[in-house]
């Protein structure tokens, strides 16, 4: 289990990570999502004791990383952004070195064989790391993290540099590992997080912008009051009529999809069911409707929205509110 409390890191005046708190339970796979420079790697480096925090604490299985670093680090398998590989060693020699470095007590030969099998590097184990492709290096890095079977795995962008097939393999592997390890993995690939993680923390500018399951995150902001329709007819007339719908916040015409057919995107107040309104209007005006889709918000949208700064504060407020509500109900349940 990982407990992070009020973790903060300043580099001079720059706040790289600002007051982050979260808990990762045993057997949970947590995804860390954020644009480059959001503070993902800094946070992970603090979790693993590579750098210290300016304030706040990290407990790995109840051990503070700064108070008892050796004991805490023994619980962690870490794959940094750039795998810490000694390029002039063979894979086998390197893994043996890590085995010794971690003072691993497991039976050496079978343990290393298992890990090589798991990461699919058995074929290259006698080759010098320098000569391996990026994908294989990444896998050796992962193998290195797995040595000693640490209960906590921290993986910083584990699928970077892999081809799509390898990505799927590594994701499957991580999912498998998640059954008996606590895993934190960072990524800026959304589909990856969606495929692998139970829970997502979106981090932006050093702060947690969202913390929930992937499904919940989409659900919370998904709406039936946002609509995309394609209607055949005069653009200006249609826009004029659509604007008359009560409770409409905005409507805008997108590009011309077919000849004389424009796409319209609109959003109304939350209690308005736009689908019915539009359909009634279309009937009344005798237009032809060619496409209608409620604009369901994907994780991608949330991510972009949150990280692009567009309506960030609004989202955070919303999420925090629902979070505190959740906490209250939880606390109520406990009491």
């Amino acid at each position: 289990m990982i407990e992070v409390k009020n973790l903060t890191k300043h580099y001079g005046d720059k706040k790289a990570v600002n007051d982050i708190s979260f808990v990762v339970n045993d057997g949970e796979i947590l995804g860390f999502l954020g644009p480059n420079g959001a503070g993902k790697s800094t946070t992970m480096n603090m979790l693993t004791g590579y750098i210290s925090s300016t304030s706040g604490s990290v407990l790995i299985n109840g051990v503070d990383v700064l108070d008892d670093p050796i004991k805490a680090k023994a619980n962690i398998g870490y794959l940094p952004e750039i795998p810490p590989l000694y390029l002039d060693m063979t894979v086998k020699a390197y893994l043996n070195f890590v085995f010794d470095l971690k003072k691993c007590k497991l039976p050496r030969k079978s343990h290393l064989t298992d890990i090589c099998e798991l990461c699919k590097i058995t074929d290259v184990k006698d080759r010098i790391i320098k000569h391996l492709s990026k994908g294989y290096k990444q896998r050796v890095g992962l193998a290195q993290a797995l040595i000693g079977n640490p209960p906590v795995l921290i993986l910083d962008e584990p699928t970077v540099g892999l081809d799509p097939k390898q990505m799927v393999e590594i994701r499957t592997l991580i999912k498998k590992l998640g059954r008996n390890h606590t895993v934190i993995l960072s990524s800026h690939i959304l589909s990856e997080i969606q495929a692998v993680c139970d829970r997502v923390i979106i981090i932006n500018k050093g702060e947690i912008a969202a913390d929930d399951t992937a499904a919940n995150l989409s659900k919370k902001i998904s709406t039936d009051h946002r609509l995309i329709v394609r209607i055949e007819g005069n653009k200006d007339e249609i826009l004029f009529e659509l604007r008359k719908i009560p409770g409409l916040k905005y409507v805008r015409a997108d590009m011309e999809r077919e000849k004389g057919v424009y796409e319209y995107e609109m959003e109304a107040e939350e209690d308005v069911d736009l689908r019915r309104e539009v359909s009634a209007l279309v009937n009344k005006m005798n237009w032809t409707i060619l496409y209608m889709n409620s604009a369901e918000i994907t994780l991608e949208d949330i991510f972009l929205k949150i990280t692009m700064g567009e309506g960030v504060s609004e989202h955070i407020k919303k999420l925090k509110e629902s979070k505190s509500e959740q906490n209250e109900t939880e606390n109520g349940g406990n009491n």
Partner: peptide
């Protein structure tokens, strides 16, 4: 330079 120190510094060694 090779970032291998990150491996050493996050390993359970003093």
């Amino acid at each position: 330079k090779q970032k291998t120190e990150q491996g050493l510094l996050t390993a359970p060694v003093s």
